[in-house]
């Protein structure tokens, strides 16, 4: 290599870094303007009394310190929405994990063929439009004409007013959500299962272990990181519950399905209490942050 060529390469590298800025600029500008700045702005707004008057005239806007957060703390409707959402998460997360893990185990079985067809049908609900399937389920849950009560009637269960009974509305949304989303975790579980070496099972078989023992002492421990990841993704996703109650119950009956995001949406975009709404959004963020931090801690402990 002569010195001229060397110089060219050097030049091209120094040019390279300018080119890098050119390549990242469009995406990063978009993310800065439409993501980072709004996040910061939301934080600032959550300390103001931004309402419908401020929307018309910015001069009426005042900083109110942590008043929104104090008000939130004393707002029974906010606590109810937090309670409802937590109830939903607590019911739906284990159910979703149990269903998706069972499906993954089934589909990972060496005995079976045509697995891709079954995998496809289990996965189908996940890709479809939430609003459209929520509408379908609203009719499935119809107390008189819905097919769920019809099937339950065949095995002798009395009709349940799924979406009209405050005790049943949230469980009904849970069932629908699990149906909608278990396919996603199933795929990740299948990937996790395929990473477990076969010879572990063979060795266990030689020692006379039965299927349940193998599951308990090989599959579950080796699948722990996958399960942890799925739990976090699922919990974080479920905390953002919105479209299902919005379409199926409008948060009712008696606010029994009012979720945090729905309350945020109502306060912000129906009553234009934007300062208050922003503080709700940040409480949601805080919850999600805590869950994620716990995940990292658990991961560190288990990987040691």
């Amino acid at each position: 290599m002569n010195s001229k060529e060397k110089k060219n390469i050097k030049n091209s590298y120094s040019f390279a870094s300018t080119a890098a800025y050119f390549f990242i600029a469009p995406a990063l500008l978009a993310i800065l303007i439409f993501f980072f700045i709004p996040v910061i702005a939301a934080f600032v707004i959550s300390f103001t009394d931004f309402d419908i008057y401020a929307l018309g005239n910015f001069n009426t806007l005042r900083f109110v310190g942590i008043n929104n957060y104090i008000r939130l703390f004393e707002d029974p409707l906010f606590w109810l929405s937090l309670k409802n959402t937590s109830y939903y998460v607590i019911l739906a997360t284990p159910l979703s994990i149990a269903v998706s893990l069972s499906a993954a185990l089934l589909l990972n079985s060496k005995l079976l063929k045509y697995k891709s067809i079954f995998r496809l049908s289990y996965f189908m609900p996940y890709v479809t439009t939430l609003v459209a399937v929520a509408i379908v389920w609203r009719f499935i849950y119809h107390p008189k004409f819905g097919i769920l009560n019809y099937f339950l009637g065949l095995i002798g269960v009395n009709p349940i007013d799924w979406l009209g009974d405050p005790n049943w509305a949230m469980p009904a949304i849970v069932i629908m959500s699990v149906w909608k989303s278990f396919g996603y975790s199933m795929i990740i579980f299948i990937a996790g299962l395929q990473n477990i070496p076969d010879d572990l099972y063979e060795a266990a078989s030689l020692e006379g272990a039965n299927e349940w023992q193998k599951f308990k002492s090989i599959t579950l421990p080796l699948l722990a990181p996958t399960t942890l990841f799925i739990s976090i993704i699922t919990i974080v996703g479920y905390f953002q519950l919105f479209a299902e109650p919005y379409i199926m119950t409008q948060g009712g009956p008696l606010n029994s399905t009012l979720s945090i995001v729905q309350y945020m949406y109502q306060e912000g975009f129906r009553w234009w209490n934007m300062g208050y709404s922003a503080s709700i959004a940040f409480v949601l963020f805080f919850i999600i942050l805590i869950i994620t931090v716990i995940q990292f801690k658990v991961q560190k402990i288990t990987s040691k």
Binding site: F34, P38, V39, A41, I45, F269, A278, L284, I288, T292
Partner: peptide, 24 residues
């Protein structure tokens, strides 16, 4: 640093941005 900053922010729920985005 930039890339890590981006990754960390993947956990921010998008609902937070919607009020300011709407106003903007």
């Amino acid at each position: 640093k930039l890339f890590n900053l981006l990754l960390v922010n993947m956990i921010v729920p998008s609902q937070i941005t919607m009020l300011p985005l709407f106003l903007m």
